[in-house]
C-alpha cells in the first residue's frame, strides 16, 4: 500500500502509469459517443471525424424527446426495477432470517435445496417459464416482467449469511421479554441488517434495470418495452436508421442516469461488489 513516492520501485510505478493509460482507453468510447450526440446528422454523413469541429447542436435530444417512446420505456424500467427491488428485499430478508435464526423441522435440508438454485442459470428455465406465463396471460404486464426474478435464491443466501453473523445477545434478551419472533425480527434484526439490504438492493436494481433476455421474450408490445429492450429495437437497422447523432443521443439519454446514480452511490456499489465476493 505504498504511496506514489520517489522511493517506490520502478516496476510498481510503471504498472501504475500503464493502468492510467488503459483507463484513458476505457474513457475514449464514452466521450466519443457524447461528442457524436451533439452533432447534426447531415454533417456526420460526411464522416464521423467531423465530431472534432463545430457546429454542435441539441437537435438530436429534442427529436428524441418529441418523437420517441423513450419516456414510456424509462417509466417502465423504473417501475419494474423499483418494485422488483422492494419485493426481493422483503421476501429475502424474511426468508433469510428464518433460515439463519429459527429452528424448524427440515430447516437444514430446505436450505441446501434452496442453495442448489444458485447453480440454475436463467437460460435453462426460460423456455418453460415462457410457456407458463402464456397460460397465465402474464406477458406484456409488469407482473410478468417482475415475477421470474422473485424466485432466485441469491438474496436469501446473502441475507441468511448476514443474519447468521449478527451477535445473538440482543435477540435473546428480547425473547426473554416474551416478544414474538416476528417482533424480534422487525425491531431488532432488520434494522441491524441495513448494510446487507443496501448490497442486495444494488444488485437487484442493476439486474432488473439491465435485464435483456427475459423482457425481450416477455414484453413484445412497444408500450411495455423496458428501456433496454426499447433501445435494442431501435438499433436493429443501425445503418439506415435516423442517423448516428440521434442514436448516440439515445445512448447518452439512456446511459447517463445510471452513470450519475453510480457516481452518487459509488461507495456503496463498490463496497457491495467487493463484499459479495468475500462470502
Amino acid at each position: 500500500m505504498a504511496k506514489l513516492d520517489p522511493q517506490e520501485p520502478v516496476f510498481s510505478r510503471l504498472s501504475y502509469w500503464l493502468v492510467i493509460a488503459l483507463s484513458l482507453c476505457w474513457l475514449i468510447p464514452l466521450f466519443w459517443v457524447l461528442g457524436l450526440s451533439f452533432k447534426p446528422n447531415e454533417e456526420l454523413s460526411y464522416g464521423l471525424g467531423t465530431v472534432f469541429r463545430a457546429p454542435y447542436t441539441l437537435d438530436n435530444y429534442s427529436d428524441l424527446i418529441r418523437s420517441s417512446q423513450l419516456g414510456r420505456w424509462i417509466l417502465n424500467s423504473v417501475v419494474v426495477s423499483i418494485i422488483q427491488t422492494v419485493l426481493v428485499l422483503i421476501i429475502c430478508s424474511i426468508a433469510g432470517y428464518g433460515f439463519a435464526r429459527l429452528e424448524f423441522p427440515g430447516r437444514r435440508a430446505l436450505f441446501v435445496f434452496v442453495l442448489i438454485g444458485l447453480a440454475i442459470p436463467r437460460q435453462a428455465i426460460i423456455i418453460p417459464l415462457h410457456a407458463m406465463f402464456v397460460d397465465l396471460d402474464l406477458h406484456n404486464t409488469y407482473t410478468g416482467l417482475i415475477l421470474p426474478h422473485l424466485g432466485t435464491p441469491f438474496g436469501v443466501f446473502l441475507m441468511a449469511s448476514y443474519f447468521r453473523a449478527l451477535p445473538r445477545e440482543l435477540e435473546e434478551a428480547a425473547a426473554l421479554d416474551n416478544a414474538s419472533r416476528w417482533k424480534i425480527f422487525l425491531t431488532i434484526a432488520l434494522p441491524l441488517s441495513v448494510p446487507a439490504q443496501i448490497t442486495l438492493a444494488i444488485f437487484t436494481f442493476l439486474d432488473a434495470w439491465n435485464d435483456y433476455l427475459w423482457p425481450l421474450i416477455s414484453a413484445t408490445r412497444p408500450e411495455m418495452y423496458t428501456l433496454t429492450i426499447g433501445l435494442a429495437a431501435t438499433q436493429t437497422n443501425f445503418d439506415q436508421s435516423e442517423g448516428i447523432g440521434y442514436l448516440m443521443a439515445q445512448a447518452v439519454f439512456a446511459g447517463l442516469p445510471m452513470l450519475i446514480l453510480y457516481l452518487i452511490f459509488q461507495k456503496y456499489v463498490l463496497r457491495a461488489v467487493a463484499g459479495a465476493g468475500g462470502r
Partner: peptide, 27 residues
C-alpha cells in the same frame, strides 16, 4: 414457535418452487 420458522421461509419457498424448480423439471 416450532413451526414459526417455516412461516418465515414459506413465501420464498412457494416462489422458488413455482418459478425455478417447476420450470426446471418441466424443461
Amino acid at each position: 414457535s416450532r413451526w414459526a420458522g417455516l412461516a418465515f421461509v414459506a413465501p420464498f419457498l412457494v416462489l422458488y418452487l413455482w418459478l425455478m424448480i417447476y420450470p426446471l423439471v418441466s424443461g
